[in-house]
Amino acid sequence: MKISELTLFNNKAETAGIGLFLLLAVLPLVLGVLYALLYSLGLIGLISDGFTFSHWQRALSDQEFWLSILYTFYIALTTIAISITSALAASLYINKPLQKGIAGFSAYIPLAFPAIVVAFLAFQLGSQSGFFARLFFQFGIITDTAAFPEMVNDPFGIGIIAAHTFMAMPFFTLYFMSLYDQENISELSQVAQTLGASRTAQLRRIIVPIILKRAFPTLTLYTIFVMGSYEIPLILGRQTPQMMSVLVIRKLRRFSLSTIPEAYITALVFIAIILTILYLLFKSRTFSYDLDR
C-alpha cells in the first residue's frame, strides 16, 4: 500500500494536499456507505443478530419506500421544469430591465435566503390562515379559512415546489443572463438572422438550445440538490408521501429501533441514485468541457 502511494504522489506537498482531500472528501463517503450497508445487512447495530437480507426485503416491499422515490423525482423535476421555463422567459424577455436598478438588485435577494427561511415564509404566506388566504378573505373571495385551497402540507407538494422555485428561478435567470453574454449568443443569433432566421427561429434553434446545453451540468446538479433537500419538505410536506431525505430521518429517529435498517437502506438507495446521475453526467461531453475550462 505504501509503495503504491509513493509512486502515486511526486512530492511531499502533493502527498499532503491529496491526502487531505482523500481524508475530507473521499474517506467519509466510503465509511458512511460502508456503515449503512453493514447496518442494513444486520451485521452491526443495536438490534443486529447476524447477516440477513430481511431488512432489504422488508424495505423493498414497502410501498412507502417506492412512493418516496417517485415523489422525490416528481418534486425535483417539476421544480426544475417550472424554474427553467420561467427563468428562460425572464432572462430573454426582460433581460434589459433586469440588469439595472432595483429590479437588477432584487433578483439576487432570494440567494440570501436559507432553505429553512424560505420554508417558513411559504408556510406563512400559503397556509389556510396565511397572508394569501387573508388577501382572498379581505377581497371577499372566501368567507372562512377552510375555503382557501391547501397550498402547504398538501398532497401535490405545491408548497414544496413553490418554495424551491422561489430559490431556483432567480438563480437560473441570473445564470442564463450570464451565459447569454459569455457564449456570445447575441452575435450568434445575428449570424442566424442574416442567414434568414426569424426571431422565433433564432430562439428555437440557437438561443434556447445553446443556453440549455451549456447550462445542462448545472441544471442537473441543481436537480440533485432539490432531490436531497430537507428543510423545505420537512416543514411544507405531509406524512405521506415524503421525500427521501425526510423519510430517512423520520425512520432513523423513530422510537422503535426496528426501522433504523430501513432508514439506512433508503439512504443507500438515495446515494446510489445520486451517484448514478453524477456518473452519467460526468460521461457526457458537456461536463468534461466544463471541467477542462
Binding site: 445575428q190 449570424v191 438572422q193 442574416t194 442567414l195 434568414g196 432566421a197 426569424s198
Partner: peptide
C-alpha cells in the same frame, strides 16, 4: 435582416 438575402 433575415429577409434581405445578404449574408454577413
Amino acid at each position: 435582416p433575415q429577409d434581405r438575402d445578404v449574408v454577413y
